[in-house]
Each structure stands twice: as structure tokens, then as C-alpha cells.
């Protein structure tokens, strides 16, 4: 198979991380890339320009490269997360920890989670992934002690997991609303939710008499032959007379 079975069912956590890494994050550059802007502005660059200066410039395909072109030491700018991590690795920047990923921010979320037993706090959809990545790769950029933050993330995870478990009691054949659930949370629940709901849907559909005469009970003897036959689009074996059999 060109795609492993498990990946046909859901994303791998690494792929979720990949998706999240396309998000923007703020950094403090430790280098200045902005230079000779006056010289450039008068020049009409084209593809044939193999000038060394030019060729070493940033030309990105997944983001607007201007932010990278114009980095100035300690002047905050916004880049995609994966790039921020790369720069960080090269000691070229510090990552500005997002507001919610502080003791204060997480405590607020925890409070909300505790007060509203039926709701999820409005953590960003990538909270679990971003926090894990930054703990690991940008530990020195935090002002708060990491273990304190980790504990809170863990608490949030658990309290939300409890709510998820409650919510799963309401799985049904129709639909569910899952606002504020993070992508990693969704992703790990996906196989369970989809499988159970798909099966509930099939069971429900099987119990429904989908004939057109459904609402008019036994109004006409003529229907017994044809009308009551098709009872499910799933299974053509439905061309079977309704030997009334009920529970």
C-alpha cells in the first residue's frame, strides 16, 4: 500500500507536529539580516542574477520571506514555528513564549476548566504540541520554571481528558460538536470516535424502515409485494418480505 493503514485512519503525531509547525510564532532575532536596502531598491532583480549577494538572500516558498530579510537584532518579528526552531538551534534567535504558555496564562485556563465542567477552555488548537516542542527545544526562553508549566499542562490534559470521557458517553449516529479541542487531542480520539459513530450510524440505519410507505402503516395490501422491499441502501438482500419479527 502506498499509504500505511494506520495513516489512512488518522494522522501520526509527527504529522500533527508538522501541521502545527506551520503556525507563526514571534521571535527575537539575534542577528541582523536587514542590509543594503537602499542598494536593492533601485535594482530590478531577475532570475538571471547570479550575484553572490543576491543569491544568498532568503527566498522562501512557504512563507513571506520579508520577515527574514529584515531581521534586526532584538527587534521582534514573526516567523513560522519550524523556522523559529531552526534559527533557535543555530542560536540565531530567541523564541517569544506565547502569553498563554505562562504560569499566569495556564492558571487562567485551569480555572476555566474547573469552573466549566461541560466546556473546554479556549486554549489554542495547537497548545499541546507547541508546549511540548517549546519545552524541549526552547527551554531557556521561558521566564517561568519549566516544571511548573509542565505540571499545569499535565493538569490541563487530565482535566480535559476527563471531560472528553464524559463527552464520549454522548456519541451518537448524528453528529458531535467539539469546540476548543486541540488537534492532537482530536487526532488521538479520531479512530475511536469515528469507528463507534460509524457503527452506531449503521445500526441505526438498519433499524429504520426506509420504504416509502413507512409512515402509512399497512394502508394497502398491494405494498407487501414491492413497496416494503427496499429497506436499506446498504444491502440489496433487503428484497425479502417483512416477516414481522419484533422485540
Amino acid at each position: 500500500m502506498s499509504l500505511p493503514g494506520r495513516l489512512q485512519e488518522t494522522f501520526s503525531p509527527e504529522e500533527v507536529q508538522f501541521i502545527v509547525e506551520n503556525q507563526k510564532i514571534k521571535i527575537f532575532p539575534r542577528i541582523t539580516t536587514s542590509k543594503k536596502r537602499g542598494g536593492d531598491s533601485s535594482r530590478n532583480n531577475n532570475n538571471n542574477n547570479t550575484d553572490n549577494e543576491d543569491m544568498s538572500r532568503w527566498r522562501m516558498l512557504t512563507m513571506d520571506g520579508r520577515a527574514l530579510e529584515n531581521m534586526i537584532v532584538m527587534k521582534s518579528t514573526e516567523v513560522t514555528l519550524w523556522l523559529a526552531l531552526l534559527l533557535k538551534q543555530q542560536s540565531k534567535c530567541n523564541i517569544i513564549i506565547p502569553e498563554w504558555l505562562t504560569i499566569k496564562g495556564l492558571d487562567l485556563m485551569l480555572q476555566y476548566e474547573k469552573r466549566n465542567i461541560e466546556r473546554f477552555s479556549a486554549l489554542p488548537w495547537d497548545w499541546l504540541v507547541v508546549s511540548e516542542i517549546l519545552f524541549k527545544q526552547a527551554a531557556d526562553d521561558f521566564n517561568d520554571p519549566i516544571y511548573e508549566l509542565r505540571n499545569r499542562i499535565q493538569d490541563l490534559k487530565e482535566i480535559r481528558q476527563m471531560k472528553v470521557l464524559q463527552g464520549l458517553k454522548n456519541l451518537n449516529e448524528s453528529h458531535m460538536q467539539l469546540d476548543n479541542l486541540g488537534l492532537l487531542e482530536i487526532n488521538e480520539l479520531r479512530p475511536f470516535i469515528v469507528r463507534v459513530m460509524d457503527k452506531l450510524r449503521q445500526i441505526h440505519a438498519s433499524g429504520i424502515d426506509t420504504t416509502e410507505t413507512e409512515n402509512q402503516d399497512y394502508d394497502d395490501d398491494n405494498d407487501i409485494g414491492m413497496g416494503t422491499m427496499i429497506s436499506s441502501d446498504r444491502d440489496a438482500s433487503s428484497s425479502i418480505p417483512p416477516n414481522a419479527m419484533s422485540f
Binding site: 438498519s206 433499524g207 429504520i208 429497506s231 438482500s237 425479502i240 419484533s246
Partner: peptide, 11 residues
Amino acid sequence: WCAIYSAKDLA
């Protein structure tokens, strides 16, 4: 079984 007999209760 439910599909054959439209057995709503069983479903």
C-alpha cells in the same frame, strides 16, 4: 437482522 426485519427496537 435489523435491516431485514426493520427491527427498530432491536437496533
